[in-house]
């Protein structure tokens, strides 16, 4: 068993899994499942139902009519959206748990992920004319490996963080040295277990990999660009992390600087609209 698997196995034993999210993913991969099936799965967690409905009815979706049931929600926003929302909701809980005496803040990590996902979603839709749902999901999930490490390999993780503070090498390098694997690999394995779309899996795996083969319009590419922008806004995953871009992505950025400027300018508004989604204070 690889190190990633070992860590994940341990993680699975701590009851922090979003069962609902996993079941939903599996549901979605099968075309024959109905709205009813979805609704039944979500209903397993009554608080989840409430939270989902609140989000559906918020400014983020800007629906004219009020939605009062999951079935109706699915009709208006589609199953994929719903899945993403549910996953976000489910993960919020994990991220919201503060741990003591951190070298990093889980809250900070959550905000980083939220910002990355919103920004990435915008890039996907507004710049590339794609549906941004997978990017959104990626944004939320891409650093979950860090949570896993923190949870089940605490000592090694803290050691890693400490070393990172002192030494300018990349966080991933330190992880590999101390823990034996890194949060990209762990996140990748987890997303496979949860049967998430392949593009999402790969994006999580590659989000720290600089390579000219990564195209700007791919999920991985958008994720990286998003991370880059967000880190300049000080929404970093770890204190002191500064993202870099591959030459290819940088070129793309420079070529389309006008678009990106506009996007960045509109980003705050989007974040306000999505507050319902990500704000950990709101309950």
């Amino acid at each position: 068993m690889t190190r990633e698997h070992a860590l994940i196995r341990k993680f699975n034993n701590i009851k922090t899994l979003p069962h609902v999210a996993i079941r939903l993913s599996k549901l979605l991969s099968n075309e024959n499942n109905s709205f009813k099936d979805m609704e039944e799965v979500i209903r397993l967690d009554p608080t989840l139902v409430l939270r989902v409905l609140r989000i559906v009815n918020s400014a983020y979706y800007g629906l004219k009519q009020k939605v009062d049931s999951i079935e109706r929600a699915v009709v208006f926003i589609g199953m994929r959206n719903l899945r993403n929302m549910v996953v976000t909701e489910a993960l919020k809980d994990i991220f919201r748990m503060e741990t003591n005496g951190q070298v990093y803040s889980r809250r900070q990590l959550w905000l980083h992920c939220a910002a990355v996902s919103i920004c990435g979603h915008m890039i996907g839709e507004r710049i590339f004319g794609q549906k941004g749902e997978d990017v959104f999901l990626c944004g939320i999930l891409h650093d979950i490996g860090i949570i896993v490490e923190d949870q089940v390999a605490r000592k090694s993780f803290i050691e890693t963080c400490n070393r990172f503070q002192l030494n300018s090498r990349s966080f991933v390098d330190h992880e590999n040295e101390v823990i034996g694997t890194n949060h990209c690999a762990v996140g990748y394995e987890l997303s496979r277990e949860w049967s998430l779309p392949v593009t999402v899996q790969e994006a999580i795996r590659d989000h720290h990999r600089l390579s000219h083969t990564i195209s700007p319009s791919s999920v991985t590419g958008i994720l990286q660009i998003s991370e880059y922008i967000v880190s300049r806004m000080n929404y970093t995953a770890m204190p002191g992390m500064k993202e870099t871009l591959s030459a290819q992505l940088l070129d793309h950025l420079v070529e389309n600087i006008g678009e990106y400027k506009t996007l960045i300018r509109d980003l705050p508004d989007e974040m306000v609209k999505a507050r319902e989604l990500y704000d950990p204070e709101k309950e």
Partner: peptide, 17 residues
């Protein structure tokens, strides 16, 4: 101006999506 024009372009793309 650039912002407005670009925004419009982007929003159009969004609407398509």
């Amino acid at each position: 101006r650039e912002y407005r024009v670009t925004q419009k372009k982007q929003l159009t793309r969004k609407f398509c999506v």
